[in-house]
Amino acid sequence: MPPSLLETFRILSSFEPPKGSLRAAPWEEYVDWAISQGLAPLAAYNLEYRMGGGADAPEWARDRLLSIYQGSVNDNVMKLVHFKRIVDDLEGRKMLLMGGAAFAEALYPHVGFRPVLDIQVMLRRMDVDGFAGYLGQHQFRPEKDELNSGATRVVSDGRTAVYLFSDVLGAGRREELQGVFDRSKPMRVYGPSVFRPDLEDAVLLLCLEFARQGFQVPWLYFVDLRELVTGATWMGGIYSRPLEVAALQERAKAWRLERALYTALSIVERLFPHTASIVEAARPPLRRATRELLNRLVVEPVSTPGNQAVIRGADRLRRLLTGQ
């Protein structure tokens, strides 16, 4: 029986894909979808270097995916090296990298596997104007937040957008936000001012982003979450440890993100069945009616690859998932 789109996704998003033929995979459907979901670089590497003989994939599919992989490697290096040069000498500040810029080399065996489309930085509100002005000295100019990301400022040099976030947990949770800064770990490669969130905080900040986007996010983000919750076993780095489940659930409750965490973990379990035992332990307890509602309205439709339908009642859903 030929592999489904979901099975093809699971195989080609693995860091240890099983060897075998994918000749009968739904390539016409998969390739465009994988590119749109940020999955093409990792898929291309698996086909070319891990699965032997390209897993019998058609040459046109391999060529298209490989071109995306090569472009991702070059683009990531350009963006991250340029950002490093800008912030390397900054002292006396504390800023946290989030998203792809924090994950590409911490969760993925090769920095090119995880496209970094933009750079997300979390700062204290009092530091936003100063850092935006500093970036302005390096040709970064203000831009509109086209993604409705909730960033306090967005600046770009025409190649890379930098999203500056503050008060991400809301103005009433400054003590909790201070805890995120206090627990953060240095990213010394970027100089003395750049840090990244600790593991449990990284999971919850990612869930917060999912919730604010109504879970209409690229599937690459679920690969990020898979690696976070399973302890980045391929890397031996900052995120390579088991989750502290009690701390995760306690913070989720304090941040009013229990429903978002439940939903995100449930999607990861559906997409990657091998995570089931970890997800079951980490998933926050919710009322049965709430679980059934989230499963029906979010988990099931989002877990269907190729489903382009916008979830109904997206604004109401965002409020539900972010505890508003």
Rank of each mutant, 00 (worst) to 15 (best):
residue 210 F to I: 09
residue 122 M to E: 15
residue 110 H to D: 11
residue 108 Y to H: 08
residue 175 E to K: 06
residue 191 G to I: 04
residue 96 L to Y: 13
residue 196 R to W: 10
residue 108 Y to K: 10
residue 198 D to Y: 04
residue 205 L to M: 07
residue 218 P to N: 06
residue 98 M to L: 15
residue 145 D to H: 12
residue 204 L to T: 00
residue 156 S to V: 05
residue 146 E to C: 05
residue 226 R to A: 01
residue 104 A to R: 11
residue 216 Q to M: 13
residue 96 L to A: 07
residue 136 G to D: 01
residue 197 P to Y: 08
residue 183 R to P: 10
residue 142 P to S: 00
residue 149 S to H: 05
residue 107 L to M: 08
residue 138 H to N: 05
residue 106 A to S: 14
residue 172 G to C: 13
residue 124 R to S: 09
residue 89 D to Y: 08
residue 162 V to G: 00
residue 132 A to H: 09
residue 222 F to W: 03
residue 124 R to M: 13
residue 193 S to F: 08
residue 182 D to G: 00
residue 184 S to P: 08
residue 163 Y to W: 14
residue 88 D to N: 10
residue 220 L to D: 04
residue 154 V to M: 05
residue 118 D to P: 00
residue 148 N to Q: 11
residue 199 L to R: 10
residue 164 L to N: 03
residue 157 D to P: 01
residue 152 T to K: 14
residue 111 V to L: 15
residue 90 L to A: 02
residue 205 L to R: 07
residue 183 R to G: 08
residue 116 V to F: 03
residue 141 R to Q: 06
residue 141 R to M: 05
residue 218 P to L: 02
residue 101 A to E: 08
residue 160 T to P: 00
residue 108 Y to M: 09
residue 151 A to E: 01
residue 164 L to I: 12
residue 173 R to P: 01
residue 90 L to S: 04
residue 210 F to P: 04
residue 105 E to W: 07
residue 144 K to L: 11
residue 106 A to E: 14
residue 147 L to R: 09
residue 155 V to H: 05
residue 90 L to I: 07
residue 132 A to D: 06
residue 104 A to M: 10
residue 153 R to N: 02
residue 176 E to A: 02
residue 192 P to R: 04
residue 196 R to D: 11
residue 185 K to V: 15
residue 111 V to H: 14
residue 130 G to C: 12
residue 203 V to R: 00
residue 192 P to Q: 06
residue 146 E to K: 11
residue 131 F to P: 02
residue 117 L to H: 13
residue 168 V to I: 11
residue 221 Y to G: 09
residue 220 L to E: 06
residue 95 M to T: 06
residue 152 T to Y: 14
residue 161 A to E: 04
residue 136 G to A: 02
residue 135 L to W: 15
residue 227 E to K: 12
residue 138 H to M: 07
residue 162 V to I: 15
residue 136 G to Y: 10
residue 224 D to N: 05
residue 209 E to H: 14
residue 169 L to P: 01
residue 207 C to K: 01
residue 220 L to K: 05
residue 224 D to C: 12
residue 224 D to S: 09
residue 123 L to E: 14
residue 110 H to E: 11
residue 166 S to Y: 14
residue 216 Q to R: 12
residue 122 M to C: 11
residue 117 L to V: 14
residue 207 C to V: 03
residue 190 Y to I: 05
residue 226 R to K: 13
residue 213 Q to R: 12
residue 156 S to L: 08
residue 177 L to H: 02
residue 173 R to C: 00
residue 90 L to G: 07
residue 195 F to H: 05
residue 193 S to K: 01
residue 148 N to L: 14
